[in-house]
Design a protein around this nucleic acid. Structure first.
Lengths: 104, 104
DNA sequence: TTGACATATCGAAAAATCTAGATATACAAT
DNA sequence: ATTGTATATCTAGATTTTTCGATATGTCAA
């Protein structure tokens, strides 16, 4: 875990919003999972396009944001067909909260 | 509390180090408190010069780092004579850990 | 009150980040 | 095969951050 990369990822309003939205995907992304067939269970995953629409930044920007957050460990993704679904990496975020509590 | 300012403050190796050093000032700053007279009790406070020496960045840089961290809420300071002593704002950091746990 | 020292602030160059549009890639449907 | 759609990558200009040296301010000591 690279704390600095995590903090950098969190140092941006839009990225922080994305992380919060993904806590309650069904609330913030009503159309969520529209393309996800049932045999692929990826609970809470939201595709890039839906996130882009809500975040109101360009497609390339949201793509690189998501990539950055994933590299930092905050998100995980799965590609299905032409869509990439991102969701929070709750296990990592849990560890992070622990790290924060004990190390910061 | 402005989470983004906090995360920006933590997005730098040197600043992160300073925060960690200040968890155990007597360990990391052996000469700590050399100028602090006993009647001023400011436990754990370390003066700018000592921090600069350890951080190995310029005086102006360390001064602005400390100011930034204080504005973010992470540090608090007291001036005594010609020295300014900085220490962790543990109460704030505590709240922060809580925020992190519940909101991130 | 002058000189020395600690810290803060200013101004600027270099580096990093932000963000978009253009293009590439991957897949789906026809 | 071709076209359309979703996402990723590339490129580049704008903005922000980093970091320093120079200078200013505040304080102590002689």
């Amino acid at each position: 875990m690279e704390p600095i990369d995590v903090f950098k990822a969190l140092s941006n309003e839009t990225r922080l919003n994305i992380l919060e939205w993904l806590k309650e995907p069904e609330k913030h992304f009503p159309k969520q999972g529209a393309h996800l067939p049932k045999e692929v269970s990826y609970k809470g995953g939201v595709c890039v396009g839906d996130i882009q629409e809500k975040a109101k930044v360009s497609q390339s920007t949201v793509s690189s944001y998501l990539n950055m957050m994933q590299k930092a460990g905050l998100l995980e993704s799965v590609r299905h067909g032409q869509w990439t679904y991102y969701r929070r990496n709750e296990e990592f975020i849990q560890q992070l909260a622990q790290y924060f509590k004990t190390d910061i």
